[in-house]
Computed example of a mutant assay.
Amino acid sequence: MADKLKITLVKSPIGAIPKQKATVQALGLKKIRQSVELPNNGTTKGMIQRVNHLVKVEEI
């Protein structure tokens, strides 16, 4: 199991519901194709699951 996850925003959250927009912002993503590295834990996985149609996830 990887220690970190690389999360990339691949679709705009403009048409998403407000909770999904807030989740994308809480992940630290602001622009399309921007990537962040976050720890691989339950909190991060839960946030990714909420916006899985907007992001791409890779294990590092």
Rank of each mutant, 00 (worst) to 15 (best):
A2W: 07
D3L: 12
D3E: 10
K4Y: 15
L5I: 07
L5R: 13
L5C: 13
I7G: 00
I7M: 12
T8I: 15
T8G: 00
S12N: 13
S12A: 09
S12I: 03
P13W: 06
A16R: 08
A16Q: 09
I17Y: 14
I17R: 15
P18K: 08
K19P: 12
Q20F: 03
Q20M: 03
A22D: 14
V24N: 00
V24Q: 01
V24F: 03
V24M: 03
Q25S: 11
Q25R: 15
L27Y: 11
L27H: 14
G28I: 07
L29I: 01
L29P: 08
K30D: 01
K30V: 08
K31P: 01
K31C: 11
K31T: 14
I32Q: 05
R33L: 12
R33K: 12
Q34F: 03
Q34W: 03
S35L: 02
V36H: 05
V36C: 12
V36P: 00
E37W: 06
L38G: 04
L38I: 15
N40E: 04
N41P: 10
N41S: 10
T44M: 13
T44P: 02
K45Q: 07
G46D: 10
G46N: 12
M47E: 07
M47I: 02
I48K: 00
Q49A: 12
Q49Y: 14
Q49K: 15
Q49R: 15
R50Y: 13
R50H: 11
R50M: 11
N52M: 04
H53P: 01
L54W: 09
L54K: 06
V55I: 14
K56I: 01
K56C: 08
K56S: 08
E58N: 07
E58R: 02
E58Q: 06
I60Q: 01
I60C: 04
